[in-house]
Amino acid sequence: MALFENLLYALDGTSGILTITLNRPTKLNALNAATIEDIRHAMQEALDDAQVRGIILTGSGEKAFVAGADIAELAGLNEITGRRAAERGQEAFCLIEESPKPVIAAVNGFALGGGCELAMACHMRVASENARFGQPEVNLGLIPGYGGTQRLTQLIDKGKALELMLTGDQIKADEALRLGLVNHVVPAAELLPFCQQLLGRILTKAPLAVGLVIDCVNAAFDQERHGFQAEANAFSRCCGSEDFREGTTAFLEKRPAVFKGN
Rank of each mutant, 00 (worst) to 15 (best):
F4G: 07
Y9P: 02
A10C: 06
I20R: 08
I20D: 08
A30I: 00
A34W: 00
D38Q: 06
H41R: 15
A50P: 05
V52C: 04
R53W: 05
G54S: 11
I55Y: 04
I55C: 02
E62M: 08
A64W: 02
D70Y: 06
E73N: 07
G76K: 12
G76V: 04
E79I: 12
A86N: 15
Q90T: 08
F93D: 05
L95E: 12
I96Q: 08
E98Y: 06
K101C: 11
V103Y: 03
V103P: 05
V103Q: 12
A105R: 05
N108T: 09
F110G: 09
F110Y: 12
L112G: 07
G113C: 15
E117S: 13
M120P: 08
V126M: 08
E129F: 08
N130C: 12
Q135L: 15
P136V: 01
G141N: 00
G145E: 06
T153W: 03
A161I: 03
L166A: 15
K172L: 09
L177S: 05
R178G: 07
P193F: 04
F194T: 15
Q196H: 14
T204N: 06
K205V: 00
A206P: 07
V210H: 04
L212G: 03
V213F: 14
V213Q: 15
A219Q: 10
F221K: 09
D222R: 08
H226E: 14
H226N: 15
Q229F: 01
E231Y: 13
A232Y: 05
N233P: 02
C239T: 09
D243T: 04
R245A: 11
E246T: 14
T248N: 10
T248Y: 12
A250C: 04
F259I: 04
K260W: 01
K260M: 06
G261C: 06
